[in-house]
């Protein structure tokens, strides 16, 4: 096991930030820690990294207890923090070299690692630039390079794509998957469910410091009753027609808002066909019709009663 956190309890005064958190990251996994802002993701990471004190629980990394003095463990960990943490007085290359040098003493080996990190994040043409001259996306890439240049076995990324444009976000996500393919185990936190769905092999959903669900994305979606969401653009609908909709098999809910008829159903083989038949029977004119499988947001919504981004 790469990371094992057991029953972690962390309080900030009266606020319970982590409520008996259990977390395990296996070798070669990308584990996603998904939750809204303030759910305890960053606190969990800082506890795992022995930066924060906690009231209760045990944390081990690579099978050994984690502590601030566990230098033999720290040398194989790379951390990419939520906020860009680089020195404005150093160039791109110097920043990467500085942080890489905290892990790798051999200058020749370090030069090679730094160059590889520069290539990896695509900052080759900016390596003599100072951070103030970089765009937000390039800064984030530099932030990633500073965290991973020493080629750690475990990479912890805390919302590395916050406030990034789609292209930069895509670059970073591709990079993380590439690092994973090269053998790194990854703990990835985000409040963007699409990112977590895309790159993580397993997901833990956090809310108010508690694990509310965990498993693969498929397993998480299996946990909820919602199987399919079908949206139909309708011109108008009277009460009788709406009443007829409520007789559909597997139906969970039906709602009409701004000419959008939303029908949520349990898993079933003929949900879409049943709706089409009913629309014809009731002589309801319709435009577009589309079906969606449940998302992690639906999982979060069903378990907590609120949207993931609330």
């Amino acid at each position: 096991m790469i990371i094992k956190a057991t029953n972690i309890v962390k309080r900030y005064g009266e606020l319970l930030a982590l409520d008996h958190l259990n977390l395990e990251l296996g070798e070669g996994e990308i584990l996603g820690l998904l939750g809204p802002n303030g759910s305890g993701k960053t606190t969990a990471i800082n506890c795992i990294l022995a930066l924060l004190t906690y009231e209760k629980g045990e944390i081990s990394i690579f099978g050994k207890p984690m502590s601030p003095e566990a230098y033999d463990l720290k040398k194989d960990i790379g951390v990419v923090m939520q906020n860009v943490a680089v020195f404005n007085e150093l160039t791109v290359l110097e920043n990467i070299d500085y942080f890489c040098g905290l892990y790798v003493k051999d200058a020749q080996k370090r030069n090679q690692l730094v160059q590889e990190a520069v290539d990896f994040v695509g900052l080759n043409e900016f390596k003599k630039f100072y951070p103030k001259k970089l765009s937000g996306g390039l800064l984030r890439r530099l932030n990633v390079a500073c965290g991973i240049a020493h080629k750690p076995k475990l990479i912890i990324l805390d919302e590395p794509t916050v406030a990034l444009d789609p292209q930069s976000r895509n670059n970073i996500l591709e990079g993380i998957m590439e690092l994973n393919r090269k053998g790194a185990s990854v703990l990835y936190t985000s409040h963007y469910m699409e990112e977590v769905e895309r790159i993580c092999s397993r997901i833990i959903i956090l809310d108010k410091g508690r694990v509310i669900a965990s498993g693969t994305k498929e397993a998480l979606k299996e946990m909820i009753t919602l199987g399919e969401k079908i949206t139909v653009e309708v011109n108008a609908l009277n009460d009788a027609q709406l009443g007829a909709m409520k007789g559909l098999p597997n139906l969970l809910s039906v709602s009409l808002s701004d000419s959008q008829l939303v029908i949520k159903s349990r898993k079933g083989k003929n949900n879409l066909e049943n709706i089409l038949v009913l629309l014809k029977e009731q002589n309801i004119g319709f435009g577009k019709i589309y079906s969606e499988l449940p998302t992690l947001n639906d999982v979060f919504l069903e378990i907590t009663g609120k949207e993931l981004r609330d």
């Binding site: 951390v79 923090m81 906020n83 905290l102």
Partner: peptide, 11 residues
């Protein structure tokens, strides 16, 4: 943030 990064390192 820079100091936090320093503290993650084995120094």
């Amino acid at each position: 943030g820079q100091a936090a990064r320093m503290n993650f390192a084995p120094v």
